[in-house]
Simulated scan of single mutants.
Amino acid sequence: MLVNALVEPGKHHHNRSNHLIFVLLKAEKHGLNRIEPEPYTCDCGTTLTPEVLDRGDESKASWPNCKSWSNGGKKKCPECDEYPSIDREQHIRARGYEPTPKSEIKSVTQSQREAALEKTDHTCVTCSSKAEYVKRMVPPRYGGSRDMVNLAPLCNEHYEDYGHMFVDVLYPEGWYQIHHLDWEEYVEALRDKYSSSNERLTEILDSLLEKGQPENPYPYID
């Protein structure tokens, strides 16, 4: 379920000025298949945990403050002294998601697109502008479905000029990738909003807040 769509300003991700963050409740309903995050593996066979990669860090900067490889980081494998080449599946598994093979990914059909646009009366989920495009909130490479629940109508600006990410209220570990949004503050506000109308959800959010946000399980992901 889409709870909100928020803009993250600044050049935090892939040098894009802004990102649109889809805040979801139970991303599995959108097709996401979670697994235990898997460390990267070098071509030489070495398991590249953050601790192992720190040994091959030319700048000797500790996680998580080092640069990612895509931003010029210099993380060598300490065993073979090579910069690791990380493929699509390794990146996805490192995030704790089961990757969908490219051959199995299907495009959103015209009828699915039209149904999604009609659901919001052709209005962008982020602003009041006319929606002309449809975006999968959970990307297909992560298992994101073509079902209505996973389709977000967007205007031209929020489709073309923004990067797109998602976070799940029920999985606070993933919020470390969001730089301007505090999970605990957001969930507290959400609990207060639904405290008088959704007892079950309030209980779930109270339980999560009592446990607190776990440590970042993805310290080597920018």
Rank of each mutant, 00 (worst) to 15 (best):
M1K: 09
A5P: 02
A5L: 06
L6M: 10
V7E: 09
G10L: 12
H12F: 10
N15A: 12
H19C: 13
I21L: 07
F22Y: 15
V23R: 00
V23H: 04
L24R: 07
L25I: 15
E28H: 10
E28L: 13
E28Y: 08
H30P: 11
G31A: 02
N33S: 15
R34A: 12
E36G: 13
T41L: 11
D43T: 10
T46R: 05
T46H: 06
T47L: 05
T47H: 03
L48M: 11
P50N: 04
L53M: 13
D54A: 09
D54N: 10
G56M: 06
D57S: 14
E58H: 08
P64K: 01
G72P: 05
K74A: 09
K74T: 11
C77D: 03
P78H: 07
E79F: 11
C80Y: 01
D81R: 09
Y83K: 08
P84W: 02
S85E: 13
I86A: 01
I86L: 08
R88G: 02
R88F: 09
R95C: 08
G96M: 01
Y97D: 08
P99I: 12
K102S: 14
Q110Y: 14
R113T: 04
L117H: 00
T120A: 03
H122L: 00
V125N: 00
V125A: 00
C127G: 02
Y133C: 01
K135I: 03
K135D: 03
P140F: 06
Y142E: 04
G143Q: 00
G143R: 00
D147W: 09
D147V: 11
V149W: 04
P153Q: 01
L154C: 00
N156G: 08
N156R: 10
E157K: 01
H158Q: 07
Y159H: 00
Y159L: 04
E160K: 12
M165W: 15
V167T: 05
V169M: 00
Y171N: 05
E173F: 10
G174C: 07
G174K: 02
W175Y: 11
H180Y: 14
E184H: 14
E185F: 13
V187L: 10
V187I: 12
K193A: 13
Y194D: 01
S195K: 12
S196Q: 12
S197F: 02
R200E: 15
R200S: 12
L205P: 06
L209W: 03
E210G: 01
K211H: 07
P214N: 13
P214I: 14
E215L: 06
Y220I: 12
D222K: 11
